[in-house]
Amino acid sequence: MPSQNISYECPVAVPVVDSVAPDLQKSEIAEPGSKPEAKEAKMIMRIRHKKMKKHKLKKLRKRMYFLWRKQKLARKAKRMTIYNKELDAIKATGENFDAEEFVRGQLAKARRGGYYINVFETKQQQLP
């Protein structure tokens, strides 16, 4: 297979304009000692206030982390003890439940209401 020599033309680099430096002809140069406008000063103060709030919050979190963690774990433990007590009460009602006694109580209520049925007799005794 014959080798092919292909030549490509590369694009010429475009000169980069340094846009970091401000255009002194268009921008106004502030004189030293001049105060910024009221609106600009207000925005600067608002930005500084937000930064300070963020800084203070970060500082507070760093200072209080272990105390807050201890309080959170205490709240969780308290909720777990309440939950375990409720669970034990439910288990106790399940263990103390007597089905035969429950049925007898329901039949007694029915008899007081005017109904009568003898569940404990056999079918042959009821037929004649």
Rank of each mutant, 00 (worst) to 15 (best):
G105D: 01
F66I: 10
E86I: 11
V16D: 07
R75Q: 08
R63W: 08
L24I: 07
S7Q: 11
A110C: 10
A38Q: 02
E101V: 02
Y83V: 02
A74R: 03
K123D: 09
K54Q: 11
L24Y: 03
G113N: 08
N96Q: 03
A30E: 12
I117K: 08
K62C: 07
Y8D: 07
K54N: 05
R111P: 05
G33Q: 00
R46K: 15
A99F: 05
F66H: 14
A38P: 00
V14A: 14
Y65W: 09
V103D: 00
K35C: 05
L67D: 06
K50D: 10
L87Q: 06
A92F: 04
G114F: 00
K51G: 12
F120M: 03
K53N: 10
K72C: 11
T93P: 01
K72Y: 11
Q25L: 07
K26M: 11
K109W: 02
N118E: 06
D88L: 04
S7L: 04
N84E: 07
L127N: 04
K50W: 11
M52Q: 15
K76S: 13
K58L: 14
K78L: 05
V17N: 06
E37Q: 07
E31L: 09
R79C: 00
A110I: 07
E95N: 15
F66C: 09
E9Q: 15
K70V: 13
K51Q: 15
E100T: 08
P22Q: 02
R48W: 12
E86M: 12
T81F: 11
V17A: 11
L60T: 05
D23C: 01
R46N: 15
S34Q: 03
K109C: 04
A30N: 14
M52H: 13
G94W: 04
K62P: 06
F97P: 00
W68I: 14
F66R: 15
F97S: 03
A77S: 01
G114A: 01
M45F: 15
D88M: 01
T81W: 12
G113T: 08
P36I: 07
K56E: 14
Y115M: 04
E40Y: 04
R46V: 14
K42I: 07
G94A: 02
E9H: 10
R61Q: 08
A99V: 04
Y115A: 12
R63S: 06
D98A: 00
Y8C: 06
N96S: 03
A38G: 00
R46W: 15
F66W: 13
Y83N: 05
L87G: 02
Q71I: 13
G105W: 00
N96M: 05
I82N: 01
M52N: 13
A41W: 08
E101Y: 02
K91R: 09
L73W: 14
I117R: 06
Y115C: 06
F66D: 13
K123C: 10
T93S: 06
K62V: 06
A21F: 10
V12T: 09
M64P: 01
L57F: 14
I90A: 08
H49V: 14
E40P: 03
R104Q: 04
Y115V: 11
G113V: 05
